[in-house]
């Protein structure tokens, strides 16, 4: 297919239970202490066992830590001051210093997103602080996928939004940090946006990774990278297989060494869990550099 080559040095593997379940999982984010945060639909807490299932499931944020020799352990829901009842809480990211968590609260009606706003919590000795609505970015449009980065020597927040006047669908933006949970007005990443959706930005060491269905790709949403040269982003490069597949590949994140990361995909792969059909639902995958034995 086309010009894309497979990166044979990478291994993409389903993270498995108990992090993944047959519904959608999203936004894997690693804290400095190794805790994995992510969004998930349909995880039933033990306290919900006696509740009648009304068919309305909400996305909530969960955390999980590594159990030696067993992988990630049981997922625990974050407290109610973050997972507010009646909202979908999703799109979590942790700042590189581990001190701030950004996420979205979404109001949806029958699968249609009516409101999506950014929130922040800071790490305290007693856990994450109650949600604080981010100022400067939220408006009469949908804002998703916040993640911290750095441009022109300033801390910025990258995100996706369908702000009127954009190129179409969801476009990528950034805003300069001006205080705790406060930012300047959104600035569009014009050269990276297309008439279709650009989503799930992730920035590390001068490289912006994002998913797009508007640039040439293997499937629905493909992962691309673009390099910041100090004044502008380069033309996007498709990451190819196995990061991308014939379906949707989003939330690509990689560490500084480039040898460990995460991905979310609805691909039909060993270990994938889907409620209905083979590709209905998103799972979290780990991305690792293959070990070479001599």
């Amino acid at each position: 297919m086309g010009t894309l080559k497979e990166n044979v040095a990478l291994n993409v593997k389903n993270i498995g239970s108990p992090v993944n379940n047959p519904e959608n999982q999203s936004s894997p984010a690693i804290d400095v202490d190794g805790t994995l945060y992510f969004g998930s639909l349909g995880v039933k807490d033990s306290k919900d066992k006696d509740k009648k299932d009304d068919g309305v499931h909400f996305c909530n944020l969960y955390s999980s830590t590594i159990v030696p020799d067993k992988g990630y352990g049981k997922a625990t829901a974050l407290p109610e001051n973050i997972n507010r009842e009646g909202y979908h809480t999703a799109n979590v990211s942790i700042t590189p210093d581990g001190n701030t968590m950004y996420y979205t609260r979404v109001v949806s009606d029958g699968g249609h997103m009516e409101e999506s706003k950014l929130y922040a919590s800071t790490k305290t000795a007693r856990g994450w602080s109650p949600a604080l609505e981010v100022t400067g970015i939220n408006g009469d449009y949908l804002v998703r996928h916040p993640v911290e980065g750095e441009l022109y020597g300033n801390k910025v927040l990258f995100f996706a939004a369908n702000i009127p006047g954009g190129k179409g669908g969801f476009d990528l933006y950034y805003a300069n940090k001006t205080g705790e949970a406060s930012f300047s007005e959104p600035i569009g990443l014009g050269s990276l946006n297309t008439a279709m959706d650009e989503l799930t930005p992730y920035y590390i060491d001068g490289k912006l990774f994002f998913s797009s269905e508007g640039w040439p790709g293997l499937g629905g949403l493909d992962v691309f990278s673009s390099t910041w040269n100090g004044s502008e982003f380069s033309a996007p490069i498709n990451l190819g297989m196995p990061i991308n597949s014939s379906v949707d590949d989003i939330y690509y994140k990689i560490n500084k060494n480039g040898d460990m990361g995460f991905l979310v995909s609805n691909r039909d792969a060993p270990g994938s869990k889907s409620l209905k059909g083979k590709t209905c639902c998103d799972d979290i995958y780990t991305v690792e550099k293959k070990e070479i034995y001599s």
Partner: peptide, 15 residues
């Protein structure tokens, strides 16, 4: 015209 442009992008990668 928007879908045509999108179809051209798709075709470029598939051919």
């Amino acid at each position: 015209p928007n879908l045509k442009a999108w179809a051209e992008t798709e075709l470029k990668e598939l051919s």
